[in-house]
Simulated scan of single mutants.
Amino acid sequence: MKNILIAFVVLLTLSCKSSDTPKSPDKVLVFTKTSGFRHESIEIGVKTIEALSKQNNFEITHTEDAALFTPENLKQYQLVIFLNTTGDVLNAEEEKAFETFIKNGGSFMGIHSATDTEYDWAWYGKLVGAYFLNHSKQSSATITRINSTHPSTKHLQEKWVHFDEWYNFKSINQDINVLLNLDESTYEGGKNGAFHPIAWYHEFDGGRSFYTGLGHTNESYAEPEFKQHLLGGILYCLKR
C-alpha cells in the first residue's frame, strides 16, 4: 500500500511539472515585400504584430526577402502573414514552396493590400479570397458584424464605425466565410453592393486562411478594436 501511495505521488508530481512547462511559442513569418504601391503603415503594422506576439506567446520573423520561401525554411512556421504586400512578390519556385506549406497544414493571413498581390497566380487568389478592384477615398464607414463568435469579431459591436481606405473586390471566392460586411450606404465609392465582405476566413487546400481589408492607415494600428481584430485572426490561424 505504501509503495502504491509513493508511486501515485511521483506520478502526480511529474504530471504537475509537465503541465507547468510553458508551450514553445508558435512561429509566424510576416512578409511585407512590395512591387507596386507601398503603404506607409507597413512599419507600424509590423511593430503592432510584434507587440501582440510578446503578449500572446508567438514569435515573429519579419522579412521582405522572398528567397526565404523554400520548403525547408517554411517548415518552421505555423503562419505566414502578407502585410500590405503588393504586386508580384514571389517567383514560380517560391510560389510552389508556399503552396506546399499550405497543403501541409500551414496558415495564411492577409492584411489590406494582400488582395492587391499576385494577380496572375490563381491559386493565391482563391487562398486570399478575392482580388482588389479599386478603392474609395479614405473615410469613416459602418461595418456590420456577421459572425459574433469568431475570435477576430466577438469583441465588436454589431455595428462598428471605422476610418480606413475601403477596397472594392473582384473574383470573390464563394467559399469564404464572411465575418464583417461593409455598409456601402455609409460612405461614397462602394462598388460591391449589399454583399461587400471586408473580413473573412476559410479553409483552403489543407490550411487556414484569414483576411481583413482594414489596415491602410497608421492610425488603424493604434485602435484597440482593430488590434484585437488582428489578434483574433492570428489566433484562428494558429488554431488556438
Rank of each mutant, 00 (worst) to 15 (best):
K137R: 08
I81P: 05
T86Y: 15
A141F: 03
L79V: 13
F98D: 06
V80M: 03
D116A: 15
S107I: 11
H112W: 08
S136K: 01
D88H: 14
S113D: 11
E94C: 10
K126T: 07
S140R: 12
N134K: 10
F82G: 02
S113M: 12
K96W: 00
G110T: 09
F82C: 03
L127T: 10
W121Q: 04
L79H: 13
F101G: 10
S140Q: 11
F132W: 10
V89F: 01
I81E: 01
N91I: 03
Y124C: 05
I143C: 14
M109W: 14
G125M: 00
D88C: 07
H135A: 01
Y131E: 04
H112M: 01
T86C: 15
T144Y: 09
F132A: 00
G129T: 07
L127I: 11
V89I: 10
I143P: 08
T85S: 07
T144V: 05
S139A: 11
W123T: 13
L83F: 11
W123I: 05
A114N: 02
F82W: 12
T115Y: 09
E99H: 11
E93N: 12
E94V: 09
L127E: 14
D120G: 10
K126N: 07
G106A: 10
E118S: 14
E99L: 06
N91K: 04
G106Y: 11
G110N: 06
S136A: 04
F98G: 06
K137I: 04
Y77P: 07
E95M: 02
E99T: 12
T144P: 01
